[in-house]
Amino acid sequence: MLSDLIDDFERACNDLLMAVRRGDESAVNLIDAEIQPLMHTIFRQHARNRDEITLQLEFFARLAVRNCEDDVGVRRYTGMMKALFDRYLPSAVNPDLADMEAGQGALSDGYDASLHEMLLDSVPERVAVVGLDYRYLYTNQPNADFHLKRPSDFIGKSLVDVMPPELYHSRAKPRLDQCFAGARVHYNYETTDAAGRMYDVRCRMTPFIGPSKAIAGAVIVLTMQPMFAPVA
């Protein structure tokens, strides 16, 4: 049911894009009127197991990424994600819900990995959280994979130990300082992975607000776009 609704939403978005390209204003209005109710229907669905929880969270994470230039949209979708966390996290430690995933391992079988980490490990973007001392507080699996390391290898390590010092001082640190001062920072650069493949990277830095409501660091999201050599 949930996956069908998400498929319907993605189809509607594709239809909307095609209608916009055709300049079909009537179709745009009709499809646009369907999309918002469908999104709220997806939000109201109660996941039956861990896979559906992840599917639902990934859906709203994709919407937040797609609308990263729209602060209002990002706040809306991350707010919905937070509401889903609040909805499902209690079930992770509630033994009365042990039958939620019969045959798959119930959520109550120990809280070994937070739903936050499940979500961040499942998105394609590389994600990291860096403290005010320029040391890693967290990194997701895609970012660790890019560096051929484990996520745990990053915790407490300084950025300057992970990237070339000249790039740290000329590119990363000045922008982190802007982020620590409250700015949202976007920039692009090129990089090569361990296999020699070239990527255009879009880096987005957002202030990380700690429990005291003060800035405690920066959330870094890296979107990788493969670069292909021109055909001769």
Rank of each mutant, 00 (worst) to 15 (best):
residue 103 G to R: 04
residue 3 S to F: 12
residue 99 D to N: 12
residue 2 L to Q: 01
residue 53 I to S: 01
residue 66 R to P: 05
residue 205 M to P: 06
residue 159 L to P: 07
residue 86 D to K: 08
residue 227 M to F: 09
residue 17 L to W: 01
residue 204 R to G: 02
residue 43 F to H: 14
residue 45 Q to H: 15
residue 66 R to W: 08
residue 225 Q to S: 11
residue 136 Y to T: 05
residue 159 L to E: 12
residue 69 E to W: 02
residue 4 D to G: 02
residue 84 L to S: 02
residue 205 M to T: 07
residue 6 I to P: 01
residue 213 K to W: 01
residue 197 R to V: 00
residue 105 G to E: 03
residue 105 G to F: 00
residue 122 S to G: 05
residue 29 N to A: 15
residue 195 A to S: 08
residue 49 N to G: 09
residue 135 R to E: 04
residue 177 D to A: 09
residue 123 V to L: 11
residue 130 V to N: 00
residue 167 L to C: 03
residue 134 Y to N: 09
residue 25 E to R: 15
residue 99 D to K: 10
residue 49 N to Q: 03
residue 105 G to D: 04
residue 187 Y to G: 05
residue 164 P to E: 01
residue 77 Y to Q: 00
residue 207 P to Y: 12
residue 59 F to W: 06
residue 142 P to V: 10
residue 38 L to N: 05
residue 185 V to T: 11
residue 114 S to T: 15
residue 199 Y to S: 00
residue 232 A to R: 15
residue 190 E to R: 14
residue 47 A to K: 09
residue 176 L to P: 04
residue 103 G to N: 03
residue 141 Q to L: 15
residue 128 A to Q: 11
residue 140 N to T: 08
residue 193 D to L: 02
residue 16 L to V: 07
residue 170 S to F: 02
residue 90 P to R: 04
residue 97 L to A: 04
residue 170 S to P: 00
residue 152 S to C: 06
